[in-house]
């Protein structure tokens, strides 16, 4: 009886593992075959994260929502030409960023003559969106956001993708076009300099 139960448990576990491993791949494959249900799952999973990401880049809710609509429509219409994917997040983040930046550049051109061409977007953090943890308990979030915004652009983007979008380092490396070790190093450098700055500020307070 116990053995049977264990066998069952083992099967369920492997099934869960299998599903988790296959979900992205399966959803993507179904989407490519034109399955609208798969596409709705994809939309519901990634819309919130892409929305925050777009808002962070453009600082404009209308632009973000319009480009997201156009972007997802583009993905659906070109689904047959898309390459096979095992993980979807890097593709969506990269493509959407490119999509959004192109639109922003077009809009900007109406106002300014030349918009700077940047590979790493300039993300800024606000005091409100930061949570206090043990490290920063006695420390004001305002100061933390100021410190965060002092970091180089690359480090800020890596921090955003890691701790806000909850992406894995492997996925971030694909999005930012740098290798895995560089992502880890960039993140660590950022966290380390934050910690040091905090320590210095605490001394003077």
């Amino acid at each position: 009886m116990i053995r049977l139960f264990l066998l069952l448990l083992k099967n369920i576990l492997s099934l869960i593992y299998y599903m988790e491993k296959l979900t992205d791949k399966f959803i993507w494959k179904s989407l490519k075959e034109g399955d609208l249900n798969a596409f709705s799952v994809l939309f519901e999973t990634y819309y919130p994260k892409l929305h925050s990401y777009g808002l962070k880049i453009s600082k404009d809710a209308d632009v973000t929502e319009d480009t997201l609509q156009d972007f997802f429509l583009y993905v659906y219409e070109h689904r047959e030409n898309l390459s096979d994917l095992d993980v979807i997040a890097p593709y969506l983040f990269t493509s959407y960023k490119r999509f959004l930046l192109r639109v922003m550049k077009k809009n900007e051109k109406l106002i300014y003559t030349d918009a700077p061409d940047e590979t790493f977007v300039d993300l800024k953090f606000t005091a409100e969106e930061l949570l206090t943890n043990q490290e920063t308990e006695s420390f004001k979030n305002r100061n933390l956001s100021t410190l965060l915004n002092k970091l180089p652009k690359r480090q800020r983007e890596a921090i955003y993708l890691k701790y806000y979008s909850d992406l894995k380092a492997t996925e971030i490396s694909e999005i930012m076009g740098i290798n895995y070790q560089s992502v880890v190093n960039t993140l660590h450098k950022a966290i380390k300099s934050l910690k040091e700055e905090i320590a210095i500020l605490k001394l003077f307070n």
Partner: peptide, 18 residues
Amino acid sequence: DLVLGVSFDKNFVSKEKV
């Protein structure tokens, strides 16, 4: 350090909005 990192008060769009 990397796991702890920075904690955000994540504010995603609502389910209704999605």
